[in-house]
Computed example of a mutant assay.
Amino acid sequence: MIAVVFGSSGGIGRALAEGVIATGKYTAVYAVSRSGAEIKGALNRRAEFTDEAQLASLAAEIGAAGPVTLCLVASGLLSADGVQPEKTYRALSADAFARVFAANTTAPALIAKHFLPLMPKAERSVFAALSARVGSISDNRLGGWHAYRASKAALNMLIRNFAIEQARRAPGSICVGLHPGTVDTGLSKAFQGGVPGEKLFTPAQAAEYLLGVVDRLTPENSGTCFDWAGKEVPA
């Protein structure tokens, strides 16, 4: 059994990779990041997640080693130089939309394109990408954060699509989104002000909760999004 964790240089991604290694369930754990960050016990690889040639090469290498039974996508973008969550539609920017969608929607989609085919047809397998509660359309009461919300809503739709397609070719396959809650990482640092201390998780806590959710998933759960506590996030 092989596990692959994308985004392993980030706080949650590193913790997920370390958590997967600690389970001892997998014959190999690949940790993939844009920087090629070193994680002890992992096969560390470097890739740009929107570069199909790099993803195809990586998939060919990993696929030759055996079937992938766990693929976690923990990369994403909330804010960066020139990109901030918008408080109003007056702040919308085509460049910001392109960057946020590339990181939060296109990258997981391309990873799925190249790694879902490596998953076994009958054996249980899980493809999970970090989503967010703010990507829920029905749960949106505050508005704002237009590009980020839209990119995660689009990701949730893709996950649903992947689940439907995988069910036809691989009945044991599970495709889900995972909402980790608010985690004390660089991504959320500027937005932690109103978060109660008990709801601000360390990366290790978040990884433990999410991997617990993954362990309990069944094919009937495929196509949905779950939070860190295992509760379904509304579409």
Rank of each mutant, 00 (worst) to 15 (best):
G230I: 01
L116D: 04
V68M: 06
W228G: 00
G223K: 11
V20M: 11
C225H: 13
G7P: 07
A102I: 11
T182C: 00
L77G: 12
L70N: 10
A98P: 03
K113R: 14
A98W: 02
D139K: 02
G223N: 11
S125W: 05
V134F: 14
S138E: 14
M1L: 13
G212R: 04
P67K: 14
R168K: 14
A163K: 08
Y209R: 14
G186S: 08
A150C: 01
T106F: 05
A103Q: 13
S9P: 09
A22D: 14
T106Y: 05
S151V: 07
S136I: 07
G177L: 07
A56Y: 05
P219R: 10
A170N: 06
I2A: 01
Y89P: 00
M119N: 08
A206P: 09
S125A: 15
F101A: 13
R124A: 12
I39M: 08
A163R: 11
C225S: 15
A31S: 13
Y209V: 01
S9D: 15
S75K: 04
Q84I: 09
Y30N: 11
A53N: 12
T202E: 02
K121N: 14
N161G: 11
P117C: 10
Y26P: 02
R160D: 08
A80D: 15
A17Q: 12
L110C: 03
K199I: 00
W145A: 04
N161V: 10
F49T: 11
A60W: 02
A190P: 12
K199Y: 03
L178Y: 11
S75R: 01
E165L: 13
E38Y: 12
N161Y: 03
P171A: 09
A154H: 06
M119S: 08
N104K: 03
L217N: 13
A190F: 04
L78P: 01
A129G: 05
D81C: 00
S151P: 10
L77T: 10
A37I: 07
A150R: 00
E86Q: 14
G82Y: 03
E52T: 10
A153N: 03
T105I: 02
G24S: 02
Q192M: 03
A109Q: 07
R149M: 10
L58F: 04
E86T: 10
N104F: 01
L178D: 09
I39F: 06
F201S: 07
S188E: 02
D139F: 06
A128L: 06
G7C: 06
M119E: 08
A42G: 13
G36D: 10
A15C: 03
A15K: 02
A109S: 14
A153Y: 00
P203N: 04
